[in-house]
């Protein structure tokens, strides 16, 4: 199959995920809010600006991925649109990769990218002081959003129900966030440094931010979330290929 085939199926599915007005309202809100936060205070560090704009955006991105990525995927299965996709002369593995792209990676890139784009336009001279660090922060937030998105996507494939996958996704998001907060707390109170570091590493943006702020960060802490994303991605593709069946 040619790349053109994949691109056009990706285009169709991305159009579904990003259909109006959901994406438009969300991007407008996060972009306005994120950029407003950096204009009401004189942010002079591109790293700090990225963090201020992307921290609330990550929450919005997670919600978007739960609703459009996960529940949207379940709708695709329930409605039978996935059957139409599967009738195209495209293998299940490339289709799984396309679905992960359209349901997780591309929305994450767009939702997180919108406020940053405004930041670059609005605070060009500040942001261009260290574009590589902005990219580093963006990548960190992207990996974090992708981690949530892939978990949500798996729930959708497994449950095939919009409401169930939506509920499971939101619950998983809060459970993950709670664990990432509880582990360092337990670690500090018991003096278990490993526990503290694991908890901290579960939120990659903070790790990258700390490393830019010259705090000591271990390399495995940087690699934890990207590794989880890679493992989950492979798992979702294999699940779709070997276990997933249409209704």
């Amino acid at each position: 199959m040619s790349l053109r085939t994949y691109y056009n199926l990706l285009y169709i599915d991305v159009s579904d995920v990003l259909r109006p007005p959901g994406l438009d309202v969300l991007v407008l809100l996060v972009a306005s809010l994120g950029s407003a936060l950096v204009t009401i205070q004189p942010v002079t560090s591109p790293v700090v600006a990225s963090r201020i704009a992307l921290d609330p955006t990550l929450f919005a991105a997670a919600l978007f991925l739960a609703v459009r990525g996960s529940a949207g995927m379940a709708y695709l299965i329930q409605s039978g649109i996935i059957n139409t996709y599967l009738t195209y002369p495209i293998g299940k593995v490339p289709l799984a990769v396309l679905l992960a792209l359209s349901r997780v990676f591309i929305p994450s890139l767009l939702v997180l990218g919108a406020p940053l784009l405004i930041l670059f336009l609005l605070l060009g001279s500040v942001m261009l002081k260290a574009p590589e660090k902005v990219f580093g922060m963006y990548t960190a937030f992207f990996f974090q959003a992708s981690l949530y998105g892939l978990i949500f996507l798996f729930f959708a494939l497994r449950s095939r129900s919009q409401s169930t996958s939506g509920l499971l996704s939101v619950s998983a998001y809060f459970a993950y966030t709670a664990i990432a907060l509880i582990l360092p707390a337990i670690g500090r109170s018991t003096g278990n440094e490993t526990l503290t570091k694991v908890g901290e590493a579960m939120y990659l943006p903070e790790i990258i931010y700390s490393s830019y702020m010259r705090a000591s960060v271990e390399s495995w802490q940087i690699l934890l979330v990207p590794s989880l994303v890679t493992i989950l991605f492979i798992f979702v593709v294999i699940y779709f290929w070997r276990r997933f069946e249409v209704i």
Partner: peptide, 17 residues
């Protein structure tokens, strides 16, 4: 659509600023 939305976002944040 994204260009339009970002243009509006830019105006909103500029007004707030």
């Amino acid at each position: 659509r994204l260009l339009l939305v970002i243009a509006i976002g830019l105006l909103v944040s500029s007004a707030i600023a």
